[in-house]
Design a protein around this nucleic acid. Structure first.
Lengths: 206, 206, 206, 206
DNA sequence: AATGAATGAGAGTTCATTCAT
DNA sequence: TATGAATGAACTCTCATTCAT
């Protein structure tokens, strides 16, 4: 991948991935046209095929770009030597910050990856699972350390964290004026306490 | 609307809305073709236009169908005379059950309503706001009743409930074998405790 | 034709021909839809086929209706015992008045008859030729009577009369406020003098 | 318009306008298909849209092409320093010759411009009015110079000239074997004498 | 005498893709 | 490295026509 291409190519290729991410995020994969992408890059439609073999390949690259370092960061967090609370905060910070930085690509991954052919989805699925499993591991540690109640369903917990973050992520992407750190704090607070050991037993009625 | 059309027309029209919901949910608005919808109904493509003036109109009807009674149910819950905990449970139950019943239409509303022209989005936006505001009202009551801490940001809380429910809704739609009531209970538990008054002060760092 | 159908049918059929004439005149044959015609009649699209076997047949009937009595009137004029000047005036009066009375049908005949299949055009062509030939006959009489110069090309003259009348007819149809008799007089004057014997020889330069 | 496009593009674009003119003239705007036009150009249907944004735009360009230099020529004639008779002859020659040269486009302008949206018709209407007004001016000069009788209605005269020319133009387009100059001469003769001062008073009856 | 419902062919248009230059 | 030109398949939508009722 490196070596076969000039510097300019690499730059333009990256430029292309970002343009595609931006357009796909805005219009969806099927609603976006290759012309849209090319125009956002400042080149002509036909020239796009110098950087992508097909529109679908572009989607694939965007999706991969969208989660890969996001997953890596989770690996770091999981392996780090911090108490459960700090890890959860770090996770949420990382997740929500992603939407501000590479924002569009992550959104595209979440919303459009289904339109990829099965084979191409495999790697993404692995990365996604790795993310969720790392997160589940963090929750297991939390139980062991006594920070969380024994009965917690770690799979449910991880999925919920991802869900909350993604839904706030969507809102963040749509409204750039929102205070990111305020949201991070409130989400962390919600999730931290939501999964903690209970005092008495305030069971809800039906 | 009633009176101007035959019984058969009404039936088929409803049939068409469901077919459209199903196809849009699966492939997205732009990824779905009118041929797909017609075929799911068992009629020919051209005949679809006897029931919809355009593909876009079909999307509009699906979206409306997707939220209208779901919003009404929230109205009922909000107006009812129950303690906060019961209202939250009822809300979550209603929201997640929707995904099982009219499932696809609600999903379509959430994911595809952006592709509607502004004017058509207005009514949907009103309904959506009504939902969120009712939910915020429930949280305000919860604060007043002492069930929730004073400092709670009700807007954040409402948005988070919606977010959690929608993200689990997506999962439910995709996997019909999931135990709906297990998820409802766990979500309620998470959210209830996440927003409750705190014991000590396990504050996380920044 | 008469006897096989009820009175109401005959009435509605006539109604249909008029509606078709009106719509064809406004939008052209290909630009008009059978739904347009039905709506102008106050019936539903499918019901139109009770009166016409096809859209094309409707055009055929409109065209025929548009010229037939117009040609008959010309026959009368040609056979009548009047001086040339009176016959020309009568011809022009008849032609231009037609546009006010059955206006749309005649316009349709002129503008849209080409879209009829060859076979159906035959009868129309005969009628049209009969008209032109009668008119040529009138001009020949005019020469014989000394009202017109010997050198006049009667075919050219007849064609020109028709051309002038049709072009003014179009204008009359489009603007119902025009003074029909003013136009008739001016046209007659133009054509009468345009074809008359010359005084000196005011040849135009190049 | 020049500079933004390749030479080849300009050529093909012109080619496309001519093909469209030809097809519209033959089948009418609504009766003609974009496939017809493309085929006449020797390209595939989809490729036509490289040269026209829409079928309607094609009609607009054809109409404009059909009258623009035809109007300019009239401007020249009107401004030139010739006696009335010469100007009339020049006008008729120009008008009828147009049908031989750019033939189809002018016919399309006359017959199909109504199908253009209002905004696009504005420019055409201006050009058409300019033509008619120039012609009226010529007739006014004719009156002043004594070549025409005082009582002449110049608007009627101009409209009639246009009408005669257009109706002969249609015939010329349909039958390429006709002797153009014979018709020009006969039309000029008809119109010149039709509007001239009268000798005695051969008034027609009513 | 008229309608509702459906059909199928064809329309205009868009678009991912290719390829010579 | 990038473009202009073209393609063909797919798409949304319209419409003349049919037919059971």
């Amino acid at each position: 991948m490196s070596g076969t291409h000039t510097d300019k190519y690499q730059q333009q290729h990256h430029h292309a991935v970002c343009a595609a991410a931006s357009v796909f995020a805005e219009k969806g994969f099927h609603g976006a046209s290759t012309k849209d992408i090319a125009e956002r890059m400042g080149i002509k439609q036909g020239s796009l095929y110098y950087y992508f073999k097909s529109k679908e390949e572009a989607l694939g690259e965007v999706c991969l770009f969208g989660i890969e370092d996001y997953v890596q960061r989770m690996d770091h967090i999981a392996k780090s030597d911090q108490p459960f609370e700090a890890k959860l905060l770090a996770t949420i910070t990382s997740h929500l910050s992603s939407y501000r930085e590479k924002n569009e690509a992550l959104k595209v991954h979440n919303d459009e990856r289904l339109y990829l052919p099965k084979e191409k989805r495999t790697k993404l699925k692995q990365l996604g699972s790795r993310y969720r499993e790392s997160l589940e591991g963090i929750f297991e540690e939390g139980i062991d350390s006594g920070a969380l109640r024994n009965s917690l369903d770690c799979h449910f917990a991880a999925q919920s964290v991802i869900g909350v973050c993604n839904s706030w992520g969507d809102i963040i992407v749509r409204d750039p004026n929102l205070d990111l750190f305020d949201i991070i704090q409130k989400c962390t607070d919600l999730l931290l306490n939501g999964f903690r050991e209970r005092r008495k037993s305030a069971r809800s009625t039906t």
